[in-house]
């Protein structure tokens, strides 16, 4: 696969544009926040340096905050937490062979068993939405409402991310 950085840069820009459109036009339920840009971090090469991971996550999160969401720092905090935990989750879900054989190439959904891919996405998004919702509702914390919001966001976004990663990103990054 050639031009990996260029492909990632294009994917990042496209995801930010999609997120802006989603924030603008898709307001189904106040409890539900649809975020597709965390997929960018999930798809990064598994062997990528973790510091670089976090810096990319911070930059992407800030872009989304500034262009789509309005409060700088909110998405960035959640994405940085997700990037920091990513290596632990990869080790937990994937076998060492899959990680080491990736050789700095993108994590293609095709190379992972479906149930492991679902677990990977769900765990990554759990970290993202837990940080996001807790930080977002820190000033008006209501236990059950916060819990409902985290749960709904994780379930819906995991389904969306699985569809997106299998249908779109796989072909694009291959």
């Amino acid at each position: 696969m050639k031009n990996v950085p260029l492909k990632y840069a294009t994917l990042g820009v496209l995801l930010i544009i999609c997120q802006i459109l989603l924030s603008e036009y898709v307001n189904i339920w106040p409890v539900l926040y649809i975020a597709i840009f965390p997929q960018f971090i999930i798809l990064l090469p598994p062997l990528l340096n973790r510091s670089l991971h976090m810096l990319i996550a911070f930059a992407l999160g800030m872009m989304v905050d500034i262009f789509a969401d309005g409060v700088p720092g909110l998405n960035a905090a959640a994405l940085v937490a997700m990037a920091y935990c990513r290596p632990f989750i990869l080790k937990l879900v994937l076998s060492r062979g899959v990680i080491e054989s990736s050789d700095n190439l993108p994590l293609l959904p095709r190379s992972v068993e479906p149930q492991k891919l679902a677990a990977l996405n769900a765990l990554m998004l759990t970290i993202f939405f837990t940080v996001y919702v807790l930080l977002d509702s820190a000033a008006s914390f209501t236990f059950w409402y916060t819990l409902l919001k985290i749960a709904v966001c994780i379930v819906v976004n995991t389904v969306i991310s699985l569809i997106c990663s299998s249908a779109l990103f796989e072909k694009y990054l291959r």
Partner: peptide
């Protein structure tokens, strides 16, 4: 890496807590 994580998170939380500052 942990220090970088703490630094980035602190910057984010500072921005969120001072809503509107940026």
């Amino acid at each position: 890496r942990f220090l970088l994580f703490v630094l980035l998170e602190s910057a984010c939380i500072y921005m969120v807590c001072n809503r509107g500052i940026v």
